[in-house]
């Protein structure tokens, strides 16, 4: 169990002024049985008002529109999180739950990933979704390489696997695809990791009524170093921010994320 404080800041600068900027931000961690969120603060600039509610996956979101002309847009989310209150998540997804058994969007396996799964199949534990999922994570960590700037936000699991390298989003999509092939329900999770300078992504797999967090980028079980933000079938369902606007020219996005432990 750890007490963490988090600070998520994102800024988008436009080379020419933008207006009618519609945004949806899914960057607010919420309390579950594994984490307790307190003192959550949201700052938007320019602040033109927004709506706050939940999407179909239970993620917290804020959305709205900055209609007047502006040259940069930023949001800043801060708060405290007690994490590691348990080793698993019991967040309900209600009637939506079965979708996490089926391939969707960026997590669909094609020939190369299917062949990879076949090569692993005989070495997997015979029983237990959790044990099999963890074994798949270890294998993926061994066989896939971390490298920035070779994939982008639209890269699919199959494309990243074929390339052999990528970032946390790619690790997560591939692990979900492998879990589906093994018959394990799996979902994509966004969040923050202690110390990291960016947002992070990992996977939750379902076994015996609980969701277990697996962080394939670090070959790590999710316990008390991760703050969970949201989940979905793939990265698109729970993208931290989405926007469309008029004008804007070229956009430069900068993200600063800081998670540190509060020591009593």
């Amino acid at each position: 169990m750890k007490k963490l404080q988090f600070d998520y800041f994102m800024e988008i600068r436009y080379t020419i002024p933008a207006k009618e900027c519609h945004f949806t931000i899914k960057c607010m961690p919420y309390t579950t049985n594994r984490q307790k969120i307190s003192d959550l603060k949201i700052e938007l600039l320019p602040d033109n008002g927004y709506t706050r509610d939940n999407d179909s996956f239970g993620n917290q979101q804020i959305y709205g529109c900055v209609s007047k002309t502006h040259r940069d847009f930023s949001f800043h989310i801060t708060g405290n999180a007690d994490v590691g209150l348990s080793d698993f998540e019991q967040t309900e997804c209600g009637g939506i739950f079965p979708v996490f058994r089926y391939p969707h969007g960026m997590n669909c396996a094609q020939d190369n990933l299917k062949a990879y799964f076949k090569s692993l199949e005989s070495s997997l534990p015979q029983a237990g979704g959790y044990e099999r999922g963890v074994a798949l994570m270890h294998a993926l960590y061994r066989d896939f390489h971390y490298e920035k700037n070779c994939t982008d936000m639209n890269t699919t699991a199959e494309e990243a696997w074929t390339l052999g390298k990528g970032v946390c989003q790619d690790y997560a999509h591939i692990l979900i695809a492998l879990c589906h092939l093994a018959g394990i329900p799996a979902r994509y999770v966004t969040g923050m990791l202690i110390g990291e300078g960016y947002s992070h992504a990992w996977v939750e797999i379902y076994d015996g009524g609980c969701w277990y967090g697996l962080d394939p980028t670090n070959d790590l079980l999710v316990t008390d170093s991760h703050i969970r933000i949201g989940c979905g079938r793939d990265a698109l369902d729970c993208m931290i921010n989405r926007g469309v606007m008029l004008g804007g020219g070229t956009q430069t996005q900068s993200i600063r994320v800081n998670v540190s432990e509060i020591l009593d």
């Binding site: 179909s56 996956f57 209600g94 009637g95 939506i96 979708v99 089926y102 079938r233 369902d237």
Partner: peptide
């Protein structure tokens, strides 16, 4: 919403959730 027809075994869930026409965003 409730998916009673699936729970009552009239229709296998595969035909819903693996269908490209099912939209998770419409849930609830």
């Amino acid at each position: 919403s409730k998916k009673q027809i699936v729970k009552d075994g009239i229709l296998p869930e595969d035909f819903i959730f693996a269908s490209s026409g099912y939209m998770a965003e419409c849930e609830g």
